[in-house]
Write a protein that binds this DNA or RNA. Sequence first.
DNA 1: ACCTGAACACCGTTCAAGT
DNA 2: ACCTGAACACCGTTCAAGT
Lengths: 244, 244
Amino acid sequence: MARASVWLEGKARKGGRTGQPSGLDRDRITSATVRLLDADGLDKFSMRRLAAELNVTAMSVYWYVDTKDDLLELALDEAFGELRLPDADDGDWRTQLRALATEYRALLVRHPWLSPLAGRYLNIGPHSLAFSRAVQRVVRRAGLPAHGVTGAISAVFQFVYGYGTIESHFAARVAAAGMTADEYFDSTMDAVTEAPDTARIIEESRDLMAARGGDTVAEMLDRDFTFALDLLIAGIEAKVSRPA
Amino acid sequence: MARASVWLEGKARKGGRTGQPSGLDRDRITSATVRLLDADGLDKFSMRRLAAELNVTAMSVYWYVDTKDDLLELALDEAFGELRLPDADDGDWRTQLRALATEYRALLVRHPWLSPLAGRYLNIGPHSLAFSRAVQRVVRRAGLPAHGVTGAISAVFQFVYGYGTIESHFAARVAAAGMTADEYFDSTMDAVTEAPDTARIIEESRDLMAARGGDTVAEMLDRDFTFALDLLIAGIEAKVSRPA
DNA sequence: ACCTGAACACCGTTCAAGT
DNA sequence: ACCTGAACACCGTTCAAGT
């Protein structure tokens, strides 16, 4: 059976990091990968394009990396390294939880390729693990019964993952269409309102959209995210006082 | 700009559904697509394999469908059609919300290709919309202030989406490895415990795993899901009584 | 130790041609 | 109206060969 993750490969890493004719090493390859993923998206990324970016033949990269999957796992963890984690276990756990959730959401939106990759791989690189540990430490401090901590972690961070996924996907579509988010939203709404089936459900939810408020797409997304996060924190507090 | 979804194509659909030499039509193509996706997964699926399955040339399919994306959107909505939705607006909203969340989770796990596709497309097919409407009707009945309804819907169903995503991904890995879920879990735990970095975080969460309990992977997943859903419902109730 | 070139077995999609 | 065959511009990866 194939190894389940780059992070579980044997100790020995190929190559030191000096003196290569082309100046290649894992770090440079990983950075270039992130750069290309940001610029062109996951679908367009290929080993051949990466090689071209590095002024090297497609197969050179395979000296440093076994497969494309391994490379994408490395890029995934590199991106997780951008998260700013709380550095002390003090202060209000609610504040820290909100900060972690907000950081994660922003990361997913900043790198639209991250959500599919986080859903595909094991997420056991060093930066992913640091994030997991930070999450765990914060949620522990909420005072939940021990049997509920893992479930509460899921509730909060699977929500953020799901929310960030649809949001980043929306952002990617906007970029591809060369519009602003608000223009894209309006034009999609128009298209959807023209088809009778979809028009009906839009009509049904008009009051909810109005009540939520927000003049721009960005504002609407922020309001929903904030309310949902408040709801989750309220849920945790309820579970602390009534463990059920 | 390209049309944003199959569901927004112009009225005129090509072809009636009788008399075709090969007996092809959209429904047959969509069903075959779902069958292949279930059997071999999203990565292995191709227009050429589908054509072979239908005893037809690769290009015949393009008479009925403009692109592979369109076809995948059709398959996505076909799968959403499997969801059993509550047929009346009575009974406890909590019960119905739990039922909807459980159905959606099971759907994601049953079709591991669904989660990536739901994250990629617009989800405005008839069955997707029916699901959205059902969700909206149930959450409305919880009695939240109007400005919080869309956020609460996000909280619950983005959580389920995220949870179902990692769970289905786990199931797909298990299947690919030809093991049972418990065997796969144990072997991954072993591999992760051998690497010192990952061993540390496992060690840190040992108490939480023990407190959660559950003798099998399936049980652990069920417990976390149930607790998280309870937490979300408690959060909704808290927001009903203290709207903030 | 590191990099290249050619090749294999694939892709999605276009287009002109058949019936 | 529906289907085919050949072709284009790609893929990830293997392998033998170069330096």
